[in-house]
Design a protein around this nucleic acid. Structure first.
Length: 415
DNA sequence: AACTCATTCAACCGCTACAAT
DNA sequence: GATTGTAGCGGTTGAATGAGT
């Protein structure tokens, strides 16, 4: 049978989008909220296929997207959601407003997978590595998981994938192990750092004993301490004991994240998920080719620097000496410990000129200046609630702040 | 400076689901 | 029920970039 391709591909651009193309697409989408993606390139004057336009919009141009690296909290959420849904990236993304499936998928494949493996956790099963259950038990475990999930079909798919990969891993380990490798594994088993030592050899639950449990059901994991010399290391303490459907650290339930639904009666509409901030033009009833598309100025990337960065990116910086004990003790989460000293200085510098926190919020101080490696940038405070929360700014004594040494000399004194 | 190798992530491709005809 | 069209999903690719030598 075969299907007609989504476009003829003749004379169409491929590869990276230019700023000009982005501008055209955004202008068009924001003003033509009812249009099939197939028609978008034609009407927007783009030499792209509709599919490519949709992808560009959904993954990159959508105005509600958060940009930048995921926060630790988001990472934890991804891990936990992945343990529930497997590689159902869109499902995971639907629990993370402002994040795309593509972004999460990339993050998983490039960062989280490695982190988990490094910690001795199988990123596929979320169980300790080398602790694969015997076939029967294995099957039983998945069956019990399945019963808890609403969508049996998807779950089965996921499990099948898991089983395939697990058996592959087992095969590989059987075939490729050399004496050296075995010796190394034994060495690893003997260390106190990994999980391996913690895994009991007999994993079978005692069916005659109600109190017995399988390690696969309740993994007995002794967490190891994070390696402070290694930015990428994190402790099991930090991972996925998250109840995803309960209130999160950010103060909202993932159930409570209400996005407006797309109009189910009109398939060709853009979903409001995809076009969330549009004031629709009442005169537009259908897709049209308009010369009167209002020109919407996009923020141009600075082509000379590539350094369009976000506060999230500063979080990987190891904290230097804390400036003030009372500030540091008010920090409530790990995020705070990742905020470096120069960030703190900038915050204090900003605060010193104010009478109150409300001044900062409501006055002309919505911009916060952050310095990193000699580069100073500013960003809108409204996106940074986590930072404010971590500094517990409501409790800050402004008189004390004003009496602090000059931030520059303070910074110099820290070296 | 030049080269190699590793990593990242935007974009592509092929497929499925689903609705419309 | 068969066919077609579209949106969306997940795996993969490859250019850009960074790190190491």
């Amino acid at each position: 049978m075969g299907r007609r391709p989504c476009c003829d591909n003749i004379g169409l651009n491929k590869g990276a989008w230019t700023a000009e193309e982005d501008k055209k697409l955004v202008n068009f989408v924001l003003t033509n909220y009812k249009c099939s993606w197939r028609d978008v390139p034609k009407h927007a004057g783009l030499l792209r296929c509709g599919k490519s336009c949709r992808l560009r919009w959904v993954n990159y141009l959508r105005p509600d997207l958060k940009r930048g690296l995921l926060t630790q909290h988001e990472e934890k959420l991804v891990i936990d959601l992945h343990s529930q849904f497997g590689n159902k990236w869109s499902k995971i993304a639907s629990h993370m407003p402002g994040r795309t499936d593509n972004e999460i998928k990339n993050l998983w494949n490039t960062h989280i997978k490695k982190k988990l493996s490094k910690m001795g956790i199988d990123p596929l099963t979320h169980k300790p590595l080398n602790a694969y259950p015997p076939p029967d038990n294995h099957h039983k475990h998945y069956q019990s998981q399945e019963a808890e999930l609403p969508n049996g079909e998807e779950t089965q798919e996921h499990h099948k994938d898991q089983e395939d990969e697990i058996s592959l891993n087992l095969e590989e380990s059987t075939i490729t192990h050399t004496d050296d490798q075995l010796a190394k594994e034994q060495e690893l088993m003997d260390t106190n750092n990994g999980f391996l030592q913690q895994v009991p050899m007999n994993n079978e639950p005692d069916e005659n004993n109600d109190n017995a449990f399988s390690i696969y059901e309740v993994p007995i994991i002794e967490p190891y301490e994070p390696d402070e010399n290694n930015d990428n290391a994190f402790s099991i303490y930090e991972i996925p004991i998250i109840e995803p459907y309960k209130n999160t650290e950010d103060g909202f339930s993932t159930h409570e994240v209400m996005l407006s639904e797309s109009n189910e009666n009109t398939n060709n509409d853009f979903s409001t998920h995809e076009v969330p901030l549009i004031k629709s033009n009442d005169n537009i009833d259908e897709c049209f080719f308009s010369d009167a598309v209002p020109s919407i100025e996009l923020e141009e990337p600075d082509e000379n620097t590539n350094n369009n960065f976000f506060i999230h990116e500063f979080q990987s910086i190891e904290p230097e000496e804390t400036l003030r004990p009372d500030l540091s003790s008010s920090c409530s989460s790990t995020t705070c410990s990742n905020t470096n000293a120069s960030t703190t200085i900038s915050i204090l510098e900003d605060l010193k000129s104010l009478q109150s926190f409300e001044d900062w919020q409501s006055g002309g101080h919505k911009k916060l200046y952050i310095e990193n490696s000699g580069v100073t940038c500013e960003d809108d405070f409204s996106d940074w609630n986590w930072l404010i929360n971590d500094f517990d700014i409501d409790t800050i004594d402004f008189e004390l702040i004003r009496s602090l040494p000059d931030p520059v000399s303070l910074k110099n004194s820290l070296g």
